[in-house]
């Protein structure tokens, strides 16, 4: 899970909606383009935004791990499969075969130059697609996220449901680890059946408090009316307009470019 990092960076001060516009614009741009230069620029933009967001490098470790896996897997699979499809008409420059002989159905998995090149493009695209949206949870407090939902007129019970689930996640993990420890102490060799027993205990312990929680919600007058007022509000300010305009400009430039390339 991604944890909110408390800071007062320019990114933190933005309205969550402008960050959503940013990540969707950048993602869309990455999907539309196949140009190394544009993808590289998008990566650079994302990195600059990341630096502005003031998130400690340590917190990024899991993201880098995912990125690394995607780049590796992306490049490798595309290197093999890009030229391997039936509708591919371009040149095929085989570097070497992954398998020593031709296996039925699978083939000999040749690594091609064209595939490798496409693999790089694909990996760069995935880097943008992963990097851009992750900025949202890192720089937006969950309570501001909830305000976005309220602004979007989601029903209150749905908002409460999402809020509570965020609150429950740490508790769920804690329960899971405790139960797993307990099980390890009861039984040495645990198999699939034991995993199911663990799930059952986890479910029961997670749901057991629901009765009490519902009563507590009751005493807190939840459901008094279908509308609620809200202490905090979010405002789409000048900074947000500027940031969104920037995001959309990037998308626009990419659109024009891809149009020029293909048109």
């Amino acid at each position: 899970m991604i944890e909110y990092v408390n800071s007062n960076s320019p990114l933190h001060r933005l309205d969550p909606r402008s960050k959503i516009i940013f990540s969707f614009s950048i993602m869309l741009a990455a999907i539309l383009t196949s140009s190394y230069i544009i993808l590289a620029s998008l990566i650079i933009i994302s990195i600059i935004i990341w630096i502005m967001a003031d998130v400690p490098i340590k917190k990024l470790k899991p993201i880098f791990l995912v990125l690394f896996t995607f780049v590796l897997m992306g490049t490798l699979t595309q290197a093999v499969f890009y030229t391997d499809r039936t509708n591919y008409t371009g040149p095929v420059t085989v570097l070497f075969n992954l398998l020593p002989y031709n296996v039925p159905v699978i083939g000999s998995l040749p690594v091609t130059v064209e595939g490798l090149m496409y693999g790089v493009v694909f990996s760069m695209r995935m880097v943008v697609i992963i990097l851009a949206p992750v900025i949202i949870p890192f720089t937006t407090h969950p309570s501001d996220m909830i305000l976005v939902l309220r602004e979007m007129r989601f029903p209150e019970w749905m908002i409460l449901l999402i809020t509570m689930s965020i609150r429950f996640i740490p508790l769920t993990f804690q329960n899971f680890y405790t139960i797993r420890n307990a099980q390890k102490l009861r039984k040495i060799k645990t198999g699939f059946h034991d995993l199911m027993l663990l799930m059952e205990t986890l479910l029961i312990t997670s749901l057991k408090t629901s009765k009490q929680m519902a009563l507590s919600l009751e005493t807190k007058a939840f459901g008094y009316s279908s509308k609620r007022t809200s202490l905090k509000t979010i405002k789409f300010g000048k900074k947000d307009v500027i940031f969104s305009a920037f995001s959309l400009t990037v998308l626009g430039i990419v659109l024009i470019n891809t149009g020029a390339v293909y048109g």
Partner: peptide, 19 residues
């Protein structure tokens, strides 16, 4: 109930969503 799901069901849905 004011909502389709009652409070207890909402709490349980949240627990499932967390899982």
């Amino acid at each position: 109930n004011k909502f389709y799901f009652n409070n207890r069901e909402i709490v349980m849905l949240a627990a499932f969503l967390a899982l």
